[in-house]
Design a protein around this nucleic acid. Sequence first.
DNA 1: ACAAATGTAATGACGACAGTTACATTTTTT
DNA 2: AAAAAATGTAACTGTCGTCATTACATTTGT
Lengths: 140, 140
Amino acid sequence: MAVHVLAVLAYKEGDRVTSALLAGSVNTNPVIIRRLLLALQRAKLVETCKGAGLGSRLNRSPGRINLAEIYRAVENSEPFATPSRKPNAACPVGNCIRETLDRVFASAQEALERDLEKTTLAAVIGEVKAAGACGRKKVG
Amino acid sequence: MAVHVLAVLAYKEGDRVTSALLAGSVNTNPVIIRRLLLALQRAKLVETCKGAGLGSRLNRSPGRINLAEIYRAVENSEPFATPSRKPNAACPVGNCIRETLDRVFASAQEALERDLEKTTLAAVIGEVKAAGACGRKKVG
DNA sequence: ACAAATGTAATGACGACAGTTACATTTTTT
DNA sequence: AAAAAATGTAACTGTCGTCATTACATTTGT
């Protein structure tokens, strides 16, 4: 959803876009979009202004935004679940395995993010435009 | 939790272990463990038998089990959420972006799994044992 | 025959997240 | 100055996935 929103903003590069229009494109509620935009603002990916005729726009060119940044801006929880209950204190495995797995999972997540870094928002838009036979001209 | 269970089974290599004992180590309910074991059986990672004095054991040596296999055995849903609602049909971005992102996400997930492949269950156990100062001798 | 163990169904509790409504606040436009 | 447009934010609901619990049928060894 975040990529979708940023892609629409990239289409309208320079112009400000309202959350209502973005919500129309994603087919959801404007409040959902605004909550998403807050996260993207914190990551300095978009700039948003209140007021009549205003809205949001990209803060950087699409070629300078990669999907790992979007992932980090939006995804707050770890991809690997860690059990809620504490392990049995009398079991050496349960006592020590957590920190070992934390290292392994951190490495795996880094690998994932490094792969996402290879794709820019501009590249996504390029593919969407190339496959553009399926759409009309109007964005929003 | 799956890695934890398999690690305990590796500790008791050869011996059969009951779901009740495994549940004690993870500090959860035996039924949870049994459901987990079903997935690990499907992946041919463990062998389980019903009956008095029976239980589960590893089907392969810990050096021949890597974390990617465990991940695939247990994790059924995609790590990236795809929106439930259909996008606005009048928006070319919404129409085409899904398949582009599917490719990108599949690549990222492959990168993650390739990283997990580099760690074997034996390696995890080795680290746990090396940090063994924190535990007692009894497993289970 | 009995005990021990798994397989499985039904149900509940809980958290994460999308969604919705409502409203205060800010800024442009007129 | 007033109105309109837009965001920021709070409160609440619904849904979904997962862990948890209880209960019971089934299988297998002693």
